[in-house]
Simulated scan of single mutants.
Amino acid sequence: MINFNGTILAEEANILTQNRGFLYGDAVFETVKIRKGVILFLEDHYFRLMASMRVVRMEIPMNFTMEYFEEQLLLVVKANNISEAARVRITVYRNDGGYYLPKKNTVSFLVHGTALEVNEYLFDTNVYEVDLFKDFYITKQLLSSIKSTNRLLNTAASIYASENGLDNCLLLNDSKNVVEAIQGNVFMVLGTKLITPPVSEGCLNGVMRKQILALAKKIENLEVVEAVISPFDLQKADELFITNVIKGVQPITKYRKKSFQTKVSCQLVELLNEQIAL
């Protein structure tokens, strides 16, 4: 028997009592954007999920091919009639059993999705203010670069942003350098350079990050660089923006007393929409 919210129930009545994703954060996930029945950047999402599973020593089922991955995600959007524009998440968790040491490394998965209002990437012209989150720090290690369900730091930072009237926070690593935003990678334009932290600094190896690095090389007179960004660099920047696969590119317009232009982020949104329309 278990106590669930003050009520004694049979243990079998609550599926979370043995779920390793719930008990230990023993799970990894991918969030994809679906446009007109097509998973954007399918290959990148699939291989990142496979890499994440290998990093945490999960057993990858023989049938878990890219075609199977695609099929399972599309089943959900078709069942919910949201194929035109959807956000879909797949969470892969190690099966029940054991404590810190699992009894087995086999996995199960859960897919769920929600409708999006539009299927293209929009350029946001609203004021978007950020500040640093300094309560906790990201460590410079391989686990920081994958999408695991251990997201307490991001949750705490989201609450901090809400309490302080911010739209987002920039997260720091244990060297006190800027790594990423709460839900995306961060880019900085400084003169003729577009700079983003390398994955070795502890940032997520973002799917949209990869797309932006490639697309930015098409912009004339813009040098694309992966380099450390310190908090002091933010005050010198001409432009800051955040990237993730659902939003695309989110311009930052204000950091403390500094305001930023949005020229490069606007160009990148245009290039991104051209790419997904092909």
Rank of each mutant, 00 (worst) to 15 (best):
F41H: 11
S145E: 12
A214F: 08
V111I: 09
L190D: 15
S52P: 08
L9K: 05
R57F: 11
S52R: 09
F47P: 03
L152C: 10
I146R: 06
N177K: 15
V186A: 06
L101M: 11
T125W: 09
K247H: 08
L122N: 08
L190V: 06
A237S: 14
L40Y: 02
S83K: 07
N164M: 05
D44Q: 13
Y99V: 02
T196K: 07
G206P: 06
N14H: 11
N81I: 01
G6F: 12
Q235H: 12
T192F: 13
G21L: 01
T139R: 09
E274T: 00
N205Q: 13
Q235C: 10
L23C: 02
V107D: 06
K78Y: 14
F232V: 10
S230V: 10
S162F: 11
S145A: 12
E117H: 05
K78S: 09
L142C: 05
N63S: 11
I195M: 09
F69R: 02
L152P: 10
I195C: 04
K263Q: 13
V111E: 04
F260C: 05
E30Q: 08
I39D: 12
Y46A: 04
R94L: 00
T91R: 08
V249L: 04
M66D: 12
L42S: 03
V130D: 11
Y160G: 01
V28G: 04
E30V: 00
Y137P: 05
Q183W: 13
L272K: 01
T262F: 00
S230M: 11
N185D: 08
I146A: 05
V189C: 07
K218Q: 15
L272A: 03
L49R: 03
A51P: 03
L16P: 00
Q275Y: 11
V38A: 04
P61K: 09
P231C: 11
L73W: 03
A79G: 00
N273Q: 01
Y68R: 06
